[in-house]
Design a binder for these strands. Structure first.
Lengths: 169, 169
DNA sequence: CTTGGAATGTCAACATCGCTGACGTATTGT
DNA sequence: ACAATACGTCAGCGATGTTGACATTCCAAG
């Protein structure tokens, strides 16, 4: 992909100037604020925040995942995660089922109510992403994802790829 | 993995499926963690955090900017910003000069020490960005920026563009 | 069967970084 | 003289992260 206008004989490395890099850094910062704005707005009326959104997202994405898995994906301590999960369980959005094979594990699932909130949140976020994608077009989207993936830490990228591989479609 | 519903018209809209959008959302989340990882690591030994980094970045970028300007760019309250600025001034990284024309204003500048820290932080962040850019290539980088810009809130995008306009040769 | 360790939960204390509200001060402009 | 602006500050709160310490539950190995 994107081999098209390859830099011929070291010709165009202009995209690697400090100025270009700084623009990218600032774009990343400002875009991330937009990226989180909609779910944040929805959640602030419900005594929840970004941490709850992230937990809900990944429980939805990998139903039955354990607390340890979630810790690894979110990169937070069990204490932080536990505080969030406790709130989600107490408000009936998440269910923690004791493992059948290993009864120490808690397998996390969204309740119907939790799934409804997940949909509300991801609809909002997806709508913004969809608008951005549509504006930028498919070629830009491919580049967007390439750069993002190259920006991840190696171990995080492995988890990201594992997540997308596990899908059936 | 490669199955396809019928393409629409000339251009496939497959890049707008919910699945594609979710990949983009997760990529954005994981990439942002990488994006902030290096400066966070540097700053945690110095009793500072991301907020200090952002302030230093934009003071470096727009020397002599006022507190009000910085509030608008960072999107935080003056109380939050003041806490950060006070720490930066007390540790001798930032200097606040009383305005000549309007003496109510404080014009913010990095000291030599502040500029050194700014360089250390932005070197780390820029190095990651440079590696990602180099891996992905110039076409991908153009797409990356297009999608990010389309993802910003309108008023934020205006500020982002104003920032880059003032600098372009 | 006992015991070690893994997985989880919990409590306590703390730091960062947002927020609101209220108030004071200096300065500017009308 | 007076209203508005720019800034600083105190007080308090909330969400989210951190360590550290300890309890519980359970699987598995000795």
């Amino acid at each position: 992909m994107a081999d098209g206008p390859a830099p011929q004989g070291g010709q165009s490395l202009l995209f690697l100037t400090d100025e270009q890099l700084r623009k990218g850094i600032e774009a990343m910062y400002f875009a991330y604020r937009g990226f989180t704005a909609d779910p944040d707005r929805i959640l602030q009326d419900k005594d929840m925040g970004r941490a709850h959104h992230r937990a809900i997202h990944f429980i939805h994405r990998s139903p039955g995942t354990t607390v340890s898995n979630l810790m690894a994906i979110l990169g937070v301590t069990k204490q932080s995660l536990n505080r969030v999960l406790r709130a989600l369980i107490e408000t009936g959005l998440v269910e923690a089922r004791v493992g059948r094979k290993d009864r120490r594990e808690r397998h996390l699932h969204l309740t119907a109510e939790g799934a409804a909130l997940e949909r509300e949140l991801s609809d909002a976020q997806r709508e913004r992403m969809r608008a951005a994608y549509r504006t930028a077009g498919p070629v830009a989207v491919a580049g967007f994802r390439q750069v993002l993936e190259a920006m991840m830490d190696d171990d995080i990228r492995r988890q990201y790829e594992a997540l997308t591989e596990r899908r059936t479609t």
